[in-house]
Every structure is written in structure tokens, then in C-alpha cells.
């Protein structure tokens, strides 16, 4: 599908795009909340195995668009989505698409860590079990341990797997949520301000984790911290008033953005 858009798409660094196929193709996406037009005719190509950051002032539509990538907006009755969002050649808004399966492939991590009120083990084991991804108890245990290891949490919790997940610190809870998302073998991980409730050390650990996870996943992160976007992402998209204003190489975006609105926003001159 060809990308036709009124946004400024700066050619991303060739090193980023080489050997990274497009994972998510959005074409002419519009999102409405009742009468409110929250996303306006948005088209974007998001590459696999890279971190793409969405930035923009509150209410610009970045979270709305993020949530439409795994149809989280379906739960809001007044919400209407038009246009195509295609992941691996399959339009996720097709009628025959299984939303539960979609959410396993497209995992999500939220602003506030939200572990289930269950044990650490159960938090991670729940997904693989209900999706039928494991054949027996050993297999399940293995999946839980690998996921916790990938999320960089295993060493800290290996002696208290049966303790409640809610008893962990904020940063640990967030990593538990990431482990839970990874456990069902997703391809895309969406993160909605995953560090805004965490202290700088816990934030650094999550950022380190994001950096490792990008080897295997397509990661999209919404963040209010410009520095975080600059640190963790390879591509940055700037949203404003429901429009995608500019999308391109993160390094270029933070040293010499093309659009004046982008420049004003990232330098703290907005509004």
C-alpha cells in the first residue's frame, strides 16, 4: 500500500529501515468520540524491530491512535474508527478478526502498573494458559520464567513467585506487566507512558528493557518526556490536534525538526 499523507514524513535513517519491514500500516485513519474528531486522516508506516515514539501535547490524539492499534477503543461506546490499520497484511478492523487473538499479538503496557490481584507467577501464567499456548505444567513454568527473565525481573522475584504481584514496587510491577505482555508471544508491544509513575532508577531499568526488547518486537511508546523519546526511540512521530505533524528519524527530529510546530513543541515554546 502506498503511503499518501499530508504529514511531513522525513526519510528515516536508512540504517533504521534496512532489514526492518513495515509492521503496522495505517491508512487514512479517523477516530471519533461522538462528535469529537480525535484523529484526522492519519497515515503512517511503523517499522518492525524498532522503537517508535509518539509525542505531542495532551489531547493531541497520540494515546487514541495507540489504543486503536489493538482496538482498545472498541470498549468505548461512542468511539468510531474509520480507515485501515494493517498488521502483517491483515486489516485489524476486518469483521472476521478475533479481537482477543489480536490483543495477544499486540500487547499493551499502561501508564499505571496494573497487575492482577494474584501471585507473581499467576500474573504471567494467566495469558499463556487462556490462549492455550502451553501444553503442560513444566511448559507453563518455563514460559513464566523466560518471560520474567526477558522483562529483567526474574532475579528479583524468583524466591517469591507465590507472593501477590501487587506487593512489588512500582517499577517491579511495571516490569511484571511487561513480562505478562511478553508471555503470550506478541509481535507488537504498545506502551502508554510506561514510566510516568516511576522514579528515575525504575525508569532507567524500563528504558534499558525497551532497548533490549526492540531486537525482537515492534515497539510503540507514547511518552510525555521528550528526553525519553530521544533516548529510547529510533523514530519519532509528533501529533498535534489530531494530526500527525511530522514522523521521522529521532536524531534528526530532536536536533533539527522540519516543521515549526514540532520545533516549538520540543523546545518548550508551545501555546
Amino acid at each position: 500500500m502506498q503511503l499518501v499523507t499530508n504529514s511531513i514524513i522525513t526519510p528515516p535513517n536508512p540504517a533504521i529501515m534496512a532489514e526492518r519491514p513495515v509492521k503496522i500500516e495505517a491508512r487514512n485513519v479517523n477516530v471519533f468520540y461522538g462528535d469529537k474528531h480525535a484523529i484526522k486522516d492519519l497515515s503512517i508506516d511503523i517499522p518492525d524491530r524498532a522503537v517508535s515514539a509518539f509525542i505531542g501535547p495532551s489531547g493531541c490524539g497520540k494515546s487514541t491512535f495507540l489504543r486503536s492499534i489493538n482496538r482498545m477503543n472498541d470498549t468505548i461506546p461512542s468511539c468510531r474508527v474509520t480507515g485501515d490499520i494493517v498488521i502483517d497484511n491483515k486489516n485489524i478492523y476486518d469483521r472476521d478478526l478475533d479481537v482477543v487473538q489480536l490483543r495477544a499479538r499486540v500487547g499493551m503496557v499502561f501508564q499505571k502498573p496494573n497487575p492482577f490481584p494474584k501471585s507473581i507467577f499467576e500474573n504471567v501464567a494467566y495469558g499463556p494458559r487462556i490462549h492455550g499456548l502451553v501444553k503442560d505444567k513444566t511448559d507453563l513454568e518455563e514460559t513464566v520464567v523466560t518471560s520474567l527473565k526477558k522483562a529483567g525481573l526474574f532475579e528479583e522475584v524468583k524466591d517469591r513467585m507465590q507472593h501477590p504481584g501487587t506487593g512489588l514496587s512500582g517499577g517491579q510491577q511495571q516490569r511484571l506487566c511487561i513480562a505478562r505482555a511478553i508471555a503470550v508471544n506478541p509481535e507488537v508491544i504498545l506502551m502508554d507512558e510506561p514510566c510516568s509513575a516511576l522514579d528515575p532508577i525504575a525508569t532507567a531499568r524500563i528504558e534499558e528493557l525497551i532497548d533490549e526488547l526492540k531486537q525482537n518486537y515492534c515497539i510503540v511508546i507514547v511518552t510525555h518526556s521528550m528526553q525519553q523519546a530521544a533516548r529510547v526511540s529510533q523514530l519519532t512521530a509528533f501529533f498535534h490536534l489530531g494530526n500527525l505533524v511530522e514522523f521521522g528519524d529521532t536524531n534528526a527530529m530532536f536536533t533539527a525538526p522540519v516543521e515549526k510546530r514540532t520545533q516549538d513543541y520540543i523546545t518548550g515554546r508551545f501555546g
Binding site: 521528550m226 528526553q227 530521544a230 530532536f254 536536533t255 514540532t262 520545533q263 520540543i266 523546545t267
Partner: peptide, 10 residues
Amino acid sequence: RRQPMAQDLR
């Protein structure tokens, strides 16, 4: 103090 970006950083 400011973590300047773009034009400010330059």
C-alpha cells in the same frame, strides 16, 4: 537544567 532540544540545543 533545561535539556535543550533542536534550535535551543544548536
